[in-house]
Design a protein around this nucleic acid. Structure first.
Lengths: 239, 239
DNA sequence: CGAAAACCATGACAAAAGTCATGTTTTCTA
DNA sequence: TAGAAAACATGACTTTTGTCATGGTTTTCG
């Protein structure tokens, strides 16, 4: 197998993931502008889309696959801010605030991702107030989500946060399987710890406990949720 | 003294704090729209502008004074997200994402704050792409700031975060006084703890240590920075 | 395929931070 | 302005979480 990433060419207008994205309501003409200079590349696991501290040159649009977005701490530990998937944009926030990337983005599983140069994206953005408004709304929503994460990090125990994280993953990646929900994302214990904001060993220990308590089952790296109510209770979603 | 808040009337166009705000470049016509239905009220310490979970009806524009914006945890502890001051807008984020307020806002010191109804604000916003773009840029920047806070909360010790918080306060509210910087904001130890994300007692203990180590002096509730370099060192701003 | 590397798991221990109790000081307000 | 309430301070102790060490398991890749 070649070590080079495979390039695939596809018009945005025919993109399978467009319906899930902010591009869903764009007009044909504007989709053509976006397609003009875009490149679509397949990435392998662990490849990095962009690094914290570098200058954004355009936006990434995820076609398939999952991408972790994280900040590196001085201790060498990552804090994962969110996980992006099909239809999500990456990098437009730094583009609009005209700052360097505030985080890095690394592929978690094989992915197909388009890159649209800054100028084309901005051209469409400024010629389409409705699109601009939609994006504004999305950014405002994201800010609210991030504030909630901050407060929970500060106010909840690791145990509560892990339970909440498993439930969140279930909501996002859950697949019904023989009565229980299998979470369809492969995360190392370390990545999971970096979402929760704790040490890897602590996550491993708590997962073992949750397993003993029959709340989850571990199938290889995948987590199966056996008792969502009990997890909800652990996450302290009532006070 | 009356228990009612005092109303003062002033045109936005003549507002002293406008130069510090996102409204600085608006045209006369648009300022008049904003002025039309606005009300400007003085608030006393501990009065609340809006509560988490309620519906936003407009935006607040701070003329003078300081306001803490926070989320309440199930344990009854606040997490302060940021402190707003002269020229800052509050509440426009929830307005734009069309969600309920995600946080509460309470006045820290006597303040004069204007309220502009939703419809007037949106009218101006949508009639002025440049203003919209400016606000978008601001929100994107805020999102980056919030992500940084999240990562630091997860990756730094309480001691490091307190040192960083004191330095941040110095940057924002510092006033040169006989060689050292007096931080011109009155925060209870509890509020400070709720910024740092820790227990009140822990903050008190660490402040005592910082004082013993001659990094700060405590003058009543106000903090004076004696050795910013040493604080920077404590905050671990190099790795 | 098979060795090396990465990852998972668990125990033992240490450190960080939280909680509770108590006393003092400051601030508010009737 | 005096009494009450809130805020500050500190000690003693507990709990939570992190770190280090070790061994087993899985994955990767030459």
């Amino acid at each position: 197998m070649s070590t080079k990433n495979m390039k695939i060419q596809l018009q945005c207008i025919a993109c399978q993931s467009r319906g899930d994205s902010h591009f869903s309501n764009l007009e044909e003409e504007q989709l053509e502008i976006l397609s003009e200079h875009k490149s679509c590349v397949t990435y392998k696991k662990n490849q990095t889309l962009f690094y914290e501290g570098t200058r954004p040159m355009g936006i990434f649009c995820i076609n398939t696959g999952k991408v972790k977005v994280f900040k590196m701490g001085s201790n060498g530990k990552e804090q994962i801010l969110f996980i992006a998937q099909k239809g999500d944009f990456l990098g437009y926030r730094s583009l609009l605030s005209e700052e360097f990337y505030g985080a890095s983005a690394t592929v978690l599983e094989p992915a197909a991702i388009c890159f649209i140069p800054k100028s084309d994206f901005l051209k469409v953005l400024h010629s389409n107030p409705e699109f601009f408004g939609k994006l504004m709304k999305a950014v405002c929503h994201e800010l609210g989500v991030m504030e909630t994460k901050l407060a929970q990090l500060s106010q909840k125990s690791v145990r509560e946060r892990l339970a909440a994280t498993i439930l969140m993953l279930k909501e996002t990646y859950g697949m019904e399987g023989e009565g229980s929900e299998v979470i369809d994302i492969v995360l190392s214990r370390e990545d999971l710890a970096n979402i929760v904001g704790t040490a890897t060993e602590t996550v491993i220990r708590l997962l073992s406990e949750f397993k003993s308590d029959k709340m989850i089952a571990l199938e290889g790296k995948k987590i199966k949720v056996l008792d969502a109510d009990k997890l909800l209770h652990e996450a302290d979603f009532y006070g």
